[in-house]
Design a protein around this nucleic acid. Sequence first.
DNA 1: CATGAATGAGCCTTCATTCAT
DNA 2: GATGAATGAAGGCTCATTCAT
Lengths: 223, 223, 223, 223
Amino acid sequence: MQDLIKETEDQPKWRRKPERRPDDILDGALREFRARGFAAARIEDIAKHAGLSKGTVYLYFSSKEEMLKELVKRTVVPLAENMKNMATILSSEAENKSAEQILRAMLNVLSSRLDDEKVQSMPLLIISEAGNFPELVNFYRDEVINMALGALEMVINKGIRTGEFRPVKTYHAIRSLIGTFIMQVIWNGVFARKGDPKISMGKLMDDHLDIYLNGIKVSKEPK
Amino acid sequence: MQDLIKETEDQPKWRRKPERRPDDILDGALREFRARGFAAARIEDIAKHAGLSKGTVYLYFSSKEEMLKELVKRTVVPLAENMKNMATILSSEAENKSAEQILRAMLNVLSSRLDDEKVQSMPLLIISEAGNFPELVNFYRDEVINMALGALEMVINKGIRTGEFRPVKTYHAIRSLIGTFIMQVIWNGVFARKGDPKISMGKLMDDHLDIYLNGIKVSKEPK
Amino acid sequence: MQDLIKETEDQPKWRRKPERRPDDILDGALREFRARGFAAARIEDIAKHAGLSKGTVYLYFSSKEEMLKELVKRTVVPLAENMKNMATILSSEAENKSAEQILRAMLNVLSSRLDDEKVQSMPLLIISEAGNFPELVNFYRDEVINMALGALEMVINKGIRTGEFRPVKTYHAIRSLIGTFIMQVIWNGVFARKGDPKISMGKLMDDHLDIYLNGIKVSKEPK
Amino acid sequence: MQDLIKETEDQPKWRRKPERRPDDILDGALREFRARGFAAARIEDIAKHAGLSKGTVYLYFSSKEEMLKELVKRTVVPLAENMKNMATILSSEAENKSAEQILRAMLNVLSSRLDDEKVQSMPLLIISEAGNFPELVNFYRDEVINMALGALEMVINKGIRTGEFRPVKTYHAIRSLIGTFIMQVIWNGVFARKGDPKISMGKLMDDHLDIYLNGIKVSKEPK
DNA sequence: CATGAATGAGCCTTCATTCAT
DNA sequence: GATGAATGAAGGCTCATTCAT
């Protein structure tokens, strides 16, 4: 349905919408890469997911490897930009907002993005194929992770500076904040069973922040 | 040192212990599985790590797949037993200990085990190969994770029951507690660079627990 | 220039002559066949040389193989006819001409034809693809080579009979006469470098005949 | 037969003589390369000629391309050295020998080598694959042809200098001398039919030289 | 007529596994 | 036991050919 041009009244027929091809293929690739790993994923299966034959895939991607790289880039670059924009807004408007408010806003964005299965698959894919694609790892670390973690670090430091937070080690604090998401992503992608209820990333984050920030804050009258 | 027979009184000296072969092979397998992924790991390379030739590996393991399973089992079963023992001790002696003390003790064991690189590799291996080895995933989840998480759940519930902890959702709390370790394991195994300083799992845990437990505890006089 | 229609009186200007398409295609085919060999030549590249798209080629030729056959036939048949005509003239008018004169005339035609690069490519193409296209080889041998060599044989025998030449073995003599050309064709097509000066086939022939005929002739007063 | 170790009395069994493997494979490769061209030659067929399976070939050669290069090198380097040695001897002892004698000696060696079918196949192989393997062409031209032609040039020039030969153009003379062989090599490899009698390269050469040298020599009393 | 997206047969190459020595 | 030569299944990739538009 999505890969057909919508029939308009005066157009006699539908036809293929070739512009969607690369995306269709990458969808299939993601499925197979996650299901079997990059090395064991077969181009023919990827093609089948997109309703194409083996050879056609090569009209759009020159190799399996290129598909992996494109996949990561397409999914991850928007997220990176998203986060970067937030970081910019935070530093300019931050005067009015507490560090807690900023952290909650940032992690809120992250958690809502992670409710998308495709985004959720990316960390697992990277983890799985790290050994064979060091450049991909570097790209991911430098363009995505460090950017995001750097933004968090900034806010935590700000909180410490203003006396809102206790003087914790930011390196550790970041891992405490992010780890919960990673854990859940892995759980969903690796261990969760078919029937298991989906856990909302947002709720998980809320609870986590409630507790963690409660623990980190310089308390006046903790509840 | 480990692959030498311990000198007994009447035996003159250390010598090769052929019974260590399987372990040597599994060491090599772990390296290669982590470096290239299961599918791309070559038996010949694994054999080389153990100073053996390709064919010899098959005297000890009937297939590459069996090596993976053995590897997980051997590394993970002791940990599972370790944790199970702790759980037993906890329930019997628990009267004397606060939930916080018990949690710290349990996570202390976990973090010290995770300082061993081989143990650290296991979660990454499982994550990478989950798609191709669902039984392995099941085994890991049922024999290791659920056991460990179950023990944590028990203690958290106990803390809530006794009024030591606020009435948090245990499912979320567990992920908050464990996520930090997972995050660090992934960081070390995937993103850390050659020169990066090694982060002690124990210190990471201490800081994490200080904050998290501070956040979760029903405070009388928070620091 | 060649692929434009000759201006006729009432036609205003040069324009594309679609009937030239097959020739354009064959030109491209010859280039690619020579550059990469028949098996490795890609239809798409051939089409590009003719300014057409892949599919269009199939409107004119039903397969790559057919293109090769057509190519050989079109280039070689005119040469064959050319030589045959000469042979006819030779036998009728020969009374007036010495064997030497006739040989020089024949090889003069051959050498001037071989100054055309397309013609020069044919022997190389045949040599390269002989294994895969035995019918082509047969056609070439029977329709072109034997005809030409037969004509030469006739003249040499005539020279021997009339006492103009010494009684050489015609089989060997023919190879001595023709080999020089073949050698040069191969040199040009295979070994000559970009900057190398073009060697005139005509001059090569003149020198070769001067010497060879001097060697073969029953001398009265050799120079 | 050749690739088995000869059974000796006290040795119970024969076994493979693996040292011959590379040669066996190259023999098969030459056959297939000549029969179908490099691109169309299938590794499996090459292996079959050597009584091996597809995969085994890759224990000895890392790719089809490498097989081609090895093939040319192994056949051609000995010939090159052979000719170089002759050239050396010629220049040192030449005082006693006429240019004619030297030329006859040199071409005698060449023609006897060319009676070996493997050697005869090399020029055809080079010609066929020139387009795809320019380095091979360069190697062949620089290491073999130029060496051989250079030696001939030297002798011809010497003959001219001493007044033994007329002052011909050496470039043309060389082609006249060598072309006959090339012609015959092509004839044998491309056009000759199954039943055709084998032409001796030596006899061909003798006749050719008789005539050509007779034509080139400054005659006192030509026959 | 032309196009070029789509197909799928075909082959090189890799490597887990076997087995004769 | 140990070896490593040999096997052959499997899959990435290319490209001649087809055909809907």
